[in-house]
Design a protein around this nucleic acid. Structure first.
Lengths: 194, 194
DNA sequence: CTGTTACGGTAACAGATGTTATGAGTACGG
DNA sequence: CCGTACTCATAACATCTGTTACCGTAACAG
């Protein structure tokens, strides 16, 4: 049956190569050959693992989501209280270190690729829904007395602020250094009474 | 000397074609030929007006900025008071109608194209700086008692929230309809006491 | 009217792109 | 130890890309 190759590991390696190219050279240079070069293989392997280019992009998109989900669940599990959990989970969505900075660039790239690609758009909607549910749940836990509409609107605003900060930081890191992003998050949470 | 052709008008027509393709087909299909088709001409005219593709994109980017600047100055001039001006100026940055929804998609596209294109990145930084200055000024006018750091951080957070909301709405308009975006903006301004 | 000049369409070019076909190498089952 | 099935590189392919060269057309100057 199967041989030596570890399929999931190769899928992940190629997906990482997609992120690498997306973050380093931009979406315009996100080609099969550049991805293969970043992964240290040829287009033969890429096409052997994925039926076509779009399937590769979809997998890279989904893997990015799962990565952040795992990180977020770890943060949530180790948080001292609901407010700390909310703060930590939101903070990891910004571009505060090299890893999340790269992810922010990649996220913008995928968002742009979403236009005119129904499957990437569906993937984005699903992931974003899970993200909204998580933040809403954390806001509700941090402010149990709030009525549901207030929780929802606050969660939406927090999400938008974090994504916006990450997007702006990805395009202009000098203007939005980690400290500035932290200050933005702290100020917003304080303003909302969270 | 010159003939019948109105150079600035043609530049604008081609730039609009760039937006049209960017918003309708995505950055992957943003090619000279698709732009020419959207503008109802051939690549000959495009290359006759712009030295190369990147110059065309830069012009379209800059024109988008000038468009929003003019709209924003109109809103600011007709606002009843500083708070109303801040609200109106921020609101036009979200995807509340067809025009601004298109612009949001285009904005994300250019942001993604910024990676690996130093000139587009420089353009983005300049435009975003002007945007930050404007919002900071409006926040200071709306809350004259605030110390400068508070004004700056609040302006940064408001900007991030608005851009994030626009980006999210551009990729998932059903989840972020105009009313939801309005609610997010109102809740955020109220939370900040503005 | 006529010569000239800008305009812009047509078509060609080299290179890049996604995809497919082919085949050499290799690890496993028998 | 052999054959088979999987792995993946090589190379070809048709198409698309940005760019350039070329040329017919039309409007203005004289």
């Amino acid at each position: 049956m199967s041989r030596t190759a570890d399929l999931p590991a190769q899928h992940e390696r190629l997906s990482r190569a997609v992120w690498e190219v997306l973050a380093g050279q931009g979406i315009e240079r996100l080609t099969l050959r550049s991805v293969a070069a970043a992964a240290g293989c040829t287009t033969g392997l890429v096409m052997h693992r994925f039926p076509n280019r779009k399937a590769l992009l979809r997998h890279a998109r989904q893997l990015l989501h799962e990565r952040t989900r795992e990180r977020v669940e770890r943060l949530e599990a180790t948080a001292a209280n609901p407010r700390a959990a909310l703060h930590a989970v939101l903070a990891q969505g910004m571009a505060l270190d090299e890893e999340t900075a790269t992810e922010s660039i990649v996220w913008v790239g995928f968002l742009a690729a979403t236009v005119g690609d129904a499957e990437l758009a569906a993937l984005h909607r699903t992931n974003n829904e899970a993200w909204r549910d998580r933040i809403s749940r954390l806001v509700a836990a941090a402010a149990p007395a709030w009525p549901k509409p207030r929780v929802t609107t606050t969660a939406f605003a927090l999400i938008a602020m974090v994504e916006g900060a990450a997007a702006l930081a990805s395009a202009d890191p000098a203007t939005y250094p980690p400290k500035a992003q932290q200050a933005m998050l702290d100020a917003t949470l304080t303003a909302f009474g969270l």
